[in-house]
């Protein structure tokens, strides 16, 4: 069993988590400048997660210093709500990450083979695979990844950053939809009517 102290100052682990989570970005095509902003925000989120979990729990020290007393484990540091739910958060994170990677992978696969297919010249509206249900699987994937991180190891910076990351991806999704309507016209409008933006059958 890991001890709390052994959790910190493992810079290899910091690097590992950063690289693994950042790798998800590779499966999103960067073809316009605007795409980078949410990606940067996501990367910052990943860094905050990795550093506070395996590097130095900076925000915990800061809050304790301000409050004058140390926070109990599971509140803004350590495994989220560990005294209430134990390691459930960690398992949920693993589930979220696995789902997210599947969705992102499937989305990438379909986009790569249809929208970006070079040999057939022009791309077309992708409606297969995960795109049958949602229009922005990759962004759903990122939301899942970040929610999972919060479930595992919530810290104050992450809780503050999450709404911003989510909002940026929401805005990006809307902008991309406008671009798609310009590119594909009614075909995309009709596709939008049949699908949801992020969560199948919900939103």
């Amino acid at each position: 069993m890991e001890t709390l102290q052994s959790h910190y100052h493992q810079w290899g682990a910091v690097l590992f988590f950063t690289v693994v989570y950042a790798a998800a970005l590779l499966f999103v095509p960067f073809y316009k400048k605007m795409d980078r902003k949410p990606a940067t925000a996501y990367l910052a989120f990943v860094l905050a997660f990795a550093i506070e979990m395996h590097g130095i729990p900076m925000s915990m020290y800061l809050i304790s210093w301000f409050a004058g007393k140390s926070l109990p484990e599971g509140i803004l540091w350590g495994h989220t709500l560990i005294s209430q739910i134990g390691y459930t958060g960690m398992y949920l994170n693993i589930l979220c990450a696995a789902t997210a990677l599947l969705i992102i992978g499937n989305g990438w696969y379909n986009i790569y083979h249809q929208y970006w297919s070079k040999e057939s010249g022009k791309g077309k509206v992708v409606k297969t695979g995960v795109y049958k249900y949602i229009r922005h699987p990759q962004y759903t994937g990122f939301m899942l990844l970040t929610v999972g991180m919060i479930l595992e190891w919530a810290t104050l910076p992450m809780l503050i950053m999450w709404p911003f990351v989510a909002w940026m991806y929401y805005r990006l999704a809307r902008k991309e939809e406008r671009d798609m309507v310009r590119e594909f016209g009614e075909e995309y409008i009709m596709y939008m009517k049949k699908t949801k933006r992020f969560i199948p059958f919900v939103v």
Binding site: K122, F184, G185, E186, E187, I189
Partner: peptide
């Protein structure tokens, strides 16, 4: 067809 898809 490409055009018809666009116009709907």
């Amino acid at each position: 067809l490409e055009k018809l898809r666009f116009t709907g």
